[in-house]
Design a protein around this nucleic acid. Sequence first.
DNA 1: CGCGTGATTGAACGATTTCAAAAGATGTGG
DNA 2: CCACATCTTTTGAAATCGTTCAATCACGCG
Lengths: 242, 242
Amino acid sequence: MTENAAAARRTLADIRPCGACPVRGLAVCGVLEPDELYALAEIVHEAHRAHRQSVIVEGDEANGFFIVTSGVASVEKLLADGRRQIVGFLYPSDFFGLAVDGRYAYNVTAVTNLAFCQFERPKYLALVDRFPKLERRLLGMASDELAASQEQMLVLGCKTAKEKVASFLSMLSERSYRLGHLRSPIWVPMTRGDIGDYLGVTTETTSRMFTKLRNEGLIAFLPDAMIDLLDINSLKKIADGG
Amino acid sequence: MTENAAAARRTLADIRPCGACPVRGLAVCGVLEPDELYALAEIVHEAHRAHRQSVIVEGDEANGFFIVTSGVASVEKLLADGRRQIVGFLYPSDFFGLAVDGRYAYNVTAVTNLAFCQFERPKYLALVDRFPKLERRLLGMASDELAASQEQMLVLGCKTAKEKVASFLSMLSERSYRLGHLRSPIWVPMTRGDIGDYLGVTTETTSRMFTKLRNEGLIAFLPDAMIDLLDINSLKKIADGG
DNA sequence: CGCGTGATTGAACGATTTCAAAAGATGTGG
DNA sequence: CCACATCTTTTGAAATCGTTCAATCACGCG
């Protein structure tokens, strides 16, 4: 057992870059054993984008599959006149690249400096054939993603501006916890405009609601885009409409 | 060839109830060959619900997997004070029953008289193990579902009331076409309240927008909840904001 | 026929948007 | 390291779209 563990550790260190990946356990890749991880590491490329740069453009042929390793990105859909809906924010371990009819139906843009892994679609599909548990994990993650989308529809369709912002902060808090950090403070690197486009309100309304929550003593602004959630229970109560 | 075809037809007729299922080709089941369909038919139950009856309740243990065979159902999420968001309407061939942490995160309610197939989860999972292509198809359908959810977020977050109703009608038109019917007229059996809860507006606003579209000569109301789309291109133009 | 449910229409109200301006951050180059 | 330019946030006041409240209408069914 001790010997095996030591062997596994030595092996992992040899598998570059996946063996040392900080989000491996949380991402799709987490289902693979060290001896299977080699196959994945062989077909992966690492890539980076600076603040505001584009990763995926709507309508592009879908020949990649991606996993965020550091930073935050936004997934957005646009109307012809420029109106924008952000349908999700991607954090480390989140995947993107699902396509409909072979094309992407959304843009992905770096919110902060961003690092991610990229798999070429044909090679990735070959790997999925070889390791069926990859496909099962992918279905599980798509299913979770679908549940999150439905929750966000509830936010967009039913909630007031204040409830929307409280929901947003609660959601980021839970996500922070799932990624192994504290529930507070949380890192909120996106602009008021980004948050507004996610919640279906304007920049100004978002700002006003943040101010209101601060004046009520529920949150405090810290340096480096961190926000302290001073009363998470009250925030969740507001988010749930009562 | 003629002999084989005849044999296949005889075989299908023997597989009850799946062999004669009107939506088999469109649903998950469509990936199975006739000789594989036996295994599915063995574990399926048919069930029915009347108008307004409940099929799934949020929080219930998820021990079923379902496919609509006739009628329409709504998938809805509720807030404590009764506010309701309909996150989707289910038509024949649509599946439902995906769960998070073993529990359903939504209610499913019959909008019209409803018929559906039900699979017990353990038996269904065993079948997925036996036929991996079932899992691949399921991932494809979940992926499509996710894309539809994101499209709906764009509707909820960005569009005006009139654009929302035009989007709704265009969507039903395309769905009608995909199910093998005409793009117009379409069957709209849900109430104004249901449609409003789907689009994030009130009953009254929904009604007003229908009236406006009728006065503009874009739609006409027919008997039996049918709506004639008199100018689909204009409707889509309005839906897309221009 | 009379009741109940859903649809429609009108009028007043209000939450959020829009428009505008100022204050605060951030980064660049001299 | 400061001064300038740019971007973001905040705050105020007016306008608006959709809601709310209320009344009437239409349809199906016992």
